[in-house]
Amino acid sequence: MNKKPIATELRLAVVLVPLMAVLSVLSPRFLTLDNLTNVVWSVCLIGILSSGAIYPRITGGIDLSLGSTAALSGIVVDLFMNRMGIPWIPSILMTVVIGALVGLFNGFIVAKIKIPAFVVTMAAKTYLYGIALVVSQGAMLAILEPRPFILISTGRFLGLPNPIYIMVALAVTSQFVLRRTAFGRQVMAVGSNEVAARLSGVDPDRVRLISYTISGGTSAVGGVILASLTQQVFAAAASGIELDVMTALVIGGTSAVGGRGSVLGALIGAIMVAFIINGLNLMNIPAPFHPIVTGSVIILALLLNEGYLVPKRRTLSRA
């Protein structure tokens, strides 16, 4: 019965292969282990953030504060571990809880006070950045300890970087929740038709609260991974990453108006975004040109997902 989303994901995978082929022709360094490992890092970060950010998106909202939440989380986990001397595991858990609370607060304003999510989370992005500046005293802080914390991101297990496992675990969980739980059904229903969902026994406010809470939580996880990887934290650490996440979601077929979405699709989207940016770097195309390319890719993906570029069969499979 999930024929449609699988079709979307398959189509994406089919686009991915020629993309890799083109990139490896354009730059001989593309298909090297070093380079692919590099790409994996950014895929992991975008993938982790997407697996939570997909919930508000499907309900018809958006979480633009996830970059600021991630950066703040890095600063907070450092504060707990290195300035307050709390062991690393409880520090991480507390940080994730704080991220979730930030999301809960966003969700509260969106669901109960009925202010558009775009505005609410845009404001949150700004004030969270401010809080991050205050807590870090505007400085870039290096995290050299504790060792296990650094190993979270830099270590490997069975030859693969650890964040891959974290991303896969989160994405699989998220996809499971979305596809196989009552809550996932309710998220889809609220995004599709809130009034009808309410009359069928769904509580849209509760669904929104939980959705933003999840997004806040995964943003904190992303922030911790980023801190562990780069071994430095600062207020602007993940600045702009929300746009990459939204790009991954759009490419992955999460509907811009809600009611539709797939984490697997978003992961493939994340890989494509990362590949494209990596390819541009390898070809020595100056950074200012990158947003032009990623922006165009969003439009292309939208056209493709809404069935504009593939004439016949698409409209049938949407029917």
Binding site: K4, A182, R185, M188, G191, S192, A196, G259
Partner: peptide, 25 residues
């Protein structure tokens, strides 16, 4: 109706208490 959802999902939504008694569908 949930226009963007399948017939199955539409029929399922008020019946989540029966098809997902412990939260898992």
């Amino acid at each position: 109706i949930l226009a963007t959802q399948s017939i199955t999902r539409n029929i399922g939504i008020p019946n989540l208490d029966l098809i997902a008694p412990r939260g898992i569908v």
